[in-house]
């Protein structure tokens, strides 16, 4: 039987284990604590915190927008890059590999500056668009590596079985390999999502009014640095924890055919 190899989990928040019980685990304590503190501050220390919460609310929306659009684009790029990296066609393989090497060798912040300021000299890119492009291009490379690892982790016998039935390379990939690879890929992809969400805070450097930038604006007007950044940090934490839970639920759903 094809064994499932574990893909090394990289950066990003830890995905809660299915064996954890109730709320008495790292995830449960974190989410209860974060939500509890936010509620407490909002309801009982409401003088500055209510104002902060209302001020940064539309920043949360922008953060979600950037995250969502970047995840979609990065997944598409990642799938193409991953397929390119496992392609037997040398030219395609080389292009995909070079892309990964180059992008992973440049810090995301530099890529953001590059696309917004450097390319901004030739192209008139909207700040939000520039942010999404930079995030997608960068995470597409990382995602590509995750896809590649997931595809190559599938037992060679699966390809042979599919080919021996008469499926061509493409059918084999889309009917047999990728549906299985998804399950191995999901935890590391989920971690990339979470890392991506956190990295969207970098776009506050551009003129994108995301959660962090709204916080910066508020604090520089009011000098309430402690209160503002406490709130901002807690909001990021809650979003990240919820996302990681979502990923682990999806993972559990996808693993239904595996023997435990």
């Amino acid at each position: 039987m094809s064994e499932t190899r574990i893909i090394d989990v990289g950066e990003g928040a830890a995905i809660p284990s299915k064996n954890d019980w109730g709320l008495f685990n790292a995830w449960g304590i974190s989410i209860t604590g974060a939500v509890g503190v936010i509620l407490y501050l909002y309801l009982f220390e409401s003088t500055p915190y209510k104002r902060i919460a209302h001020y940064v609310a539309d920043g949360i929306i922008i953060t979600f927008e950037v995250t969502f659009m970047s995840i979609i684009c990065a997944c598409c790029i990642g799938l193409v890059v991953g397929l390119g990296r496992v392609s037997k066609n040398k030219a395609i393989n080389l292009v995909a590999s070079t892309y990964v090497e180059v992008i992973r060798g440049i810090p995301l912040l530099v890529q953001l500056f590059y696309i917004y300021y450097a390319l901004g000299r030739f192209l008139n890119v909207h700040d939000l668009t520039a942010a999404v492009i930079a995030m997608s291009v960068c995470y597409g490379a990382y995602m590509g590596e995750v896809f590649r690892a997931g595809i190559t982790a599938i037992d060679k016998g699966q390809t042979e079985a599919a080919r021996s039935l008469g499926f061509n390379t493409k059918q084999t990939m889309f009917l047999v390999i990728l549906p299985q690879a998804w399950r191995t890929i999901l935890p590391p992809v989920g971690n990339e999502f979470i890392a991506l969400l956190k990295d969207t805070s970098l776009v506050s450097i551009l003129a994108v009014s995301d959660l962090l930038r709204r916080g910066r604006e508020f604090s520089s007007e009011t000098f309430l640095y402690f209160e503002t950044y406490t709130m901002v940090a807690l909001i990021y934490l809650v979003i990240t924890l919820l996302l990681s839970k979502g990923v682990s639920i999806m993972e559990a759903r996808l693993s239904h055919y595996v023997r435990h």
């Binding site: 039987m1 699966q158 021996s164 039935l165 008469g166 047999v176």
Partner: peptide, 20 residues
């Protein structure tokens, strides 16, 4: 070859059923 393979059933040592 894909057409021809349809005429050739193959059984492997490691079964290679599609687990999904």
């Amino acid at each position: 070859i894909n057409r021809l393979r349809m005429e050739l059933g193959m059984v492997f040592q490691s079964f290679n059923l599609f687990p999904h």
